[in-house]
Design a protein around this nucleic acid. Sequence first.
DNA 1: TACATTTGCTTAAACGATTAAGCAAATATA
DNA 2: TATATTTGCTTAATCGTTTAAGCAAATGTA
Lengths: 338, 338
Amino acid sequence: MNKKRITIKDIANVLNISPAAVSKAMHDDSRISTKTKEAVRRVAKELNYQPNHLASALRKGKSNLVGVIVPRTNSNFFSSVIENMEAVLNKAGYNIIITQSNESFDKECKNIDTLLYTQVDGIIASMANETVDLSHYEKIKSKGIPLILFDRGENDLNVDYVGINDYDSSHIIVEHLVEKGCKRIAHIGGYRRTRIFNNRIRGYVDALKKNKLPIDDSLIIESSLTLEDGRREMERLLSLDNKPDAVYVASDYAALGALQVLNESKINVPKEIKLVGFGNEPFTSLVSPSITSIAQHSKDIGRLAAETFLKRIAQPELKQSLNKIILEAQLIVRDSSS
Amino acid sequence: MNKKRITIKDIANVLNISPAAVSKAMHDDSRISTKTKEAVRRVAKELNYQPNHLASALRKGKSNLVGVIVPRTNSNFFSSVIENMEAVLNKAGYNIIITQSNESFDKECKNIDTLLYTQVDGIIASMANETVDLSHYEKIKSKGIPLILFDRGENDLNVDYVGINDYDSSHIIVEHLVEKGCKRIAHIGGYRRTRIFNNRIRGYVDALKKNKLPIDDSLIIESSLTLEDGRREMERLLSLDNKPDAVYVASDYAALGALQVLNESKINVPKEIKLVGFGNEPFTSLVSPSITSIAQHSKDIGRLAAETFLKRIAQPELKQSLNKIILEAQLIVRDSSS
DNA sequence: TACATTTGCTTAAACGATTAAGCAAATATA
DNA sequence: TATATTTGCTTAATCGTTTAAGCAAATGTA
């Protein structure tokens, strides 16, 4: 068993040159002869040399690692964002460390500590539902490490952001339902303290007003938007004397829960009640009836978040104004609303 | 802006002690007075000190980082495995770096290089479908870094493994379908070169034999098991003169594709054709009809893989024999087969 | 030929934390 | 009182790589 680590010193010894020369040869320094470079590369391969990231990152003060925090990876939106983000960052010589908060504030704090401790060169994050206190995000900023938020952001933090226009998305959904003849549109939303969910609620309310529909507080529900939440809140809506004729759910998972309850209650979707979800998860097209939803441009968000980070790293701090990239969402109409 | 990094040297200067004393105080060394320890902790907090992982990992020759490679995170099975793995490892002082291979061999090689370069203390992986050449996995072994495989393993590698009993799972499924009166059971499986899929195919064939059913090669299909593959292969099966009366699909995603085709073709599931999937993804219970599937104990697999790694790290190499943990799968019967 | 420049390296000091070895002062033991 | 032990630190080397500074030899220029 080959226990001993091979270092540049070993390569240097074989060739009778200094470790410094080896290091420079590896980095294609112009002051090293072609002959030496070739020899170094050959010996490195022979000895199965693997550079030690810890040492070079320590010396250079740069790890070429980017930390990513998502509420969960088990969602098509987030995993697609990550995939596209990674592609851009890899090309620029960065590797990513993915962490999940599981929507927990505590876990998110721990993840940030881990990432800072690991000396990442930047953090790209989407906030957990639970998160209200922003001090741990401030900590990232105070260390001068670039922070990019996507999807679940927060205006107060004053950092770069990439996401879709949630306020307008609600308008698009309400307009669509009104067009289909709906008069009592309920909204199963997220908690108002999360900016994106607050924006969806505001958009929903304003769109109702714009269409001269009354605002009924019993039709506006805040929840964590899990599948179970969707079930429970749908049951609540069905128990109302004056039932809604459409439900706009701010997450596909909760929409799925709602659909289950509707199907179980033998309520015809879309004839009796129309349903719209949010996020365009793959399963929305697979269940019956298929669920109308909002596509969030996950690929673009991933790419843009990565590019924003690279821009931030390239520029000498402070000079650059804030990047706020807001994409327009797209309604994917399916059976549950037409 | 506080650009300068705070190091133990800064703390040492404030207190007029040596950096070594600070380091020891931080680690609660018995040879440091309580008074000094308290002072160090206080100053560390005041200066907002963050230990530099690169430096300590370099010196200690241990990064307390575990690399994880999965084909994709966008699957309930893998994300559940990761979540439980992380819980165990965090408790033991390790953090994890998640990487996805996207089922690509090249990406998997790159991920391994990145992880080795990052000096992880171990790697826990599930192989990409494409992977046949195992030399990059041998590289991990040759460096003496613990490697644990789960779900998608490979016998030839001779490393620790955690997974379910795929061979037996096929038996359970076939027995179930035979019990329901099926006589012509088709199998849409993965490629034989991947061990788990080979085992499922072998199990399927042996179970048919055991039940005195004929083996029909036109009913055994190999594919990548994506949703699209499921659709295409189901269409092929339906075009046969002698159609099957049951289909056992080795992945829920492909099973879903098959179900879509069956629904579109107005074939009654389960009356005309029964369907069984594999993996117990959440959507299996959500589609209609709901899909019978095999639960893979993702939580246990995650936990056990982590524990196996910890055991491996704790023991002085070689001494320990191989850990092969094979869990018994569980059939979750739903509407598509009863 | 005399000097300047370029080439191709070497030397040595970092990066920040850990740790073996050592040492003086305080305390315990005989 | 003399010696042993314990306490509470310091010193200095080290992990593996990078890089500023320097230096001799080779090459170019006048």
